[in-house]
């Protein structure tokens, strides 16, 4: 049995070399991505031609008002939804047009997820939830890996409890543990602190940032909260399905100002 570790699995570099189209340094990238829902006059262009790359070892926040297409963008990047046009790459591999089974295996082995709520299977214990992707792949984790991970997330005593017996913060931490245990290329987080109180939420975001800084993980987080986004290295702002701006090393004030400017512009 192969033992998974924290270290990222590196895949073969892409030959194109462009940073914004997913060069060898990008953990995840999209090129001219378009996603349309429905057809004819009622068609909705949720994503309207986005090209973006997320280099390895970075923490990126995707921000936007509701309806800006940020969730749709993340779904496509994570292989949860098929784009109408454009290319998506994960770790340099073009995943556009992969079969459902291949996408599933991709998600299992190379992507980690943290959702806003309902992350865990209610019938499994925390430990079983964390090891779920590995179980599905038929791999096992070394006990030290799990122990270290649990210790760093302060959930060691809660490992044998079911989700219904855990607090919201503990549930999210278990979800983060699950996302990390397989050593993924990239972790996609969809409003991970949306259901948490501010103290717990900030602790979680600080942890994610530590993973990025010290362990070289790549995190892409969708959020509408400027304070949460300020934990990221870079904020990508969306409006009406397109990129409306980028801020490096964002502060909450910057983000608030930019967001309100965008809203005025589109009003």
């Amino acid at each position: 049995m192969q033992h998974a570790t924290f270290a990222q699995t590196r895949s073969a570099p892409d030959s194109s070399g462009h940073t914004d189209t997913g060069g060898p340094g990008a953990a995840s990238a999209a090129t001219n991505l378009v996603k349309v829902y429905g057809s004819g006059p009622t068609a909705v262009r949720a994503v309207d031609g986005i090209s973006v790359a997320f280099p390895r070892g970075t923490f990126t926040a995707i921000m936007g008002a509701s309806g800006s297409g940020k969730s749709t963008l993340m779904h496509c990047l994570a292989g949860l939804d098929a784009p109408t046009a454009g290319r998506i790459l994960v770790g340099g591999t073009d995943i556009t047009g992969l079969s459902d089974r291949d996408l599933t295996l991709l998600r299992r082995d190379r992507i980690g997820f943290v959702f806003q709520s309902f992350n865990l299977l209610p019938t499994l214990t925390a430990r079983q939830n964390i090891l779920l992707p590995l179980d599905l792949a038929g791999r096992s984790a070394s006990p030290e890996t799990l122990a270290t991970l649990a210790k760093s997330l302060r959930i060691t005593e809660r490992l044998d409890h079911r989700p219904s017996e855990l607090s919201g913060g503990e549930q999210q931490r278990v979800a983060v543990a699950r996302a990390l245990i397989g050593g993924p290329e990239v972790i996609f987080a969809d409003e991970p602190t949306g259901m948490l109180d501010s103290k717990t939420g900030h602790a979680l975001l600080a942890y994610l940032r530590t993973c990025v800084r010290e362990l070289g993980q790549t995190v892409v987080m969708v959020t509408h909260d400027p304070i949460a986004a300020s934990y990221a290295d870079r904020a990508v702002l969306l409006a009406d399905g397109r990129i409306a701006g980028e801020i490096a090393e964002p502060t909450p004030e910057d983000l608030l100002a930019t967001m309100s400017r965008l809203q005025d512009a589109s009003a």
Binding site: L80, D100, R101, T104, L105, R107, R108, D109, F113, F118, N119, L120, L121, P122, T123, L132, P133, L136, A137, R178
Partner: peptide
């Protein structure tokens, strides 16, 4: 929802 979560996390059909 549970089945969908499983599929998200990588369980094949």
């Amino acid at each position: 929802r549970q089945i969908a979560l499983l599929r998200c996390v990588g369980a094949t059909g």
